[in-house]
């Protein structure tokens, strides 16, 4: 099912994704597997918030816990929670801890950051999160029909972009959004990541990946907020996916997960690459 088709189904988008992808006799198994993925995400967040142990390179490792312990001077507890959760997962990833790729390992924090962060902020129990997670998977699946979801194929716009789109749809549905709203949340999130480069310092999935997941988990929540207010992507969702793919292909190889451009190609970035080689 394409995003445009998904936007037109009556009721909740997650139900349509489930029906289209899974025969009725496998429904329970899929839902229980998805609940398992949710538990794994939860566990990665918990581990990530509880430690400041550095990654092997020493570039990251303490960001999530430091933010989590810091005063909330903005008066925005949702913001802080979402960012801390996202970085907790990506710092676990950088430490070679156990995480759920969603859709990739480098972008693994965005979805749990946005979805678990919002749910915990509002006191929503985990069992309610399973169907939004199914929708997130359906959105990712739809995007992957047009472009391979990987920084190497289309820069970070093809990696954090889909993860933010998935997270935006999930949060939108969690807060009562119907199919049309959820898909437009995804489209708006995706539209505003187009052209983002993949420039991991030293080739490690750490800088800028850890903080980027924090930023784009907030981005996903923001997209859900717009969609819940009735705002929509002027460009139809499938066309946004097409634009993301064509911009991704235009990016030179240096900006597609080779660690040879962007912040990777700065004096400090090059020094890290030399030191860790």
């Amino acid at each position: 099912m394409t995003l445009n088709e998904l936007a037109q189904v009556p009721g909740r988008a997650s139900e349509a994704v489930l029906r289209a992808s899974t025969p009725p006799e496998e429904r329970e198994a899929l839902l229980s597997a998805m609940a398992g993925r949710l538990a794994e995400m939860r566990d990665a967040v918990r581990r990530g918030l509880a430690t400041k142990a550095p990654s092997r390179t020493g570039m990251v490792g303490w960001n999530a816990a430091t933010l989590w312990e810091a005063d909330d001077r903005l008066g925005a507890p949702l913001l802080k929670r979402v960012q801390a959760y996202a970085m907790a997962v990506n710092e676990e990833n950088a430490r070679m801890g156990r995480i759920v790729a969603a859709p990739t390992a480098g972008s693994a924090g965005t979805l749990p950051g946005a979805l678990l962060g919002t749910a915990d902020h509002l006191g929503i129990p985990d069992e309610v999160l399973v169907m939004p997670l199914v929708l997130a998977a359906g959105v990712g699946e739809a995007i992957s029909q047009t472009m391979f979801i990987a920084g190497a194929s289309g820069g970070c716009g093809a990696e954090i972009g889909p993860s933010a789109a998935m997270a935006a749809a999930a949060v939108c549905e969690l807060l009562g959004g119907g199919a049309r709203a959820a898909v437009h949340a995804a489209a708006m999130a995706l539209m505003n990541t187009i052209g983002l480069v993949c420039d991991p310092v030293g080739g490690f999935v750490e800088v800028p990946c850890v903080s980027r997941n924090a930023f784009y988990s907030v981005h996903a929540v923001a997209a859900a907020q717009l969609a819940l207010a009735g705002l929509e992507s002027f460009i139809p969702p499938d066309e946004v996916v097409g634009a993301m793919a064509s911009v991704g292909r235009l990016l030179p190889p240096e900006l597609r997960e080779t660690g040879e451009g962007g912040v990777a190609d700065t004096p400090t970035g090059r020094m890290i690459a030399l030191k860790m080689a």
Binding site: V17, M34, R37, R98, I99, A102, G106, G138, A152
Partner: peptide, 21 residues
């Protein structure tokens, strides 16, 4: 790609292609 491939795999980081694959 199935739904559980998109939300998954559960894996030890840091890269789905360079580590899990």
């Amino acid at each position: 790609m199935g739904l559980l491939d998109v939300i998954g795999p559960v894996m030890v980081g840091p890269s789905s292609s360079h580590t899990a694959g």
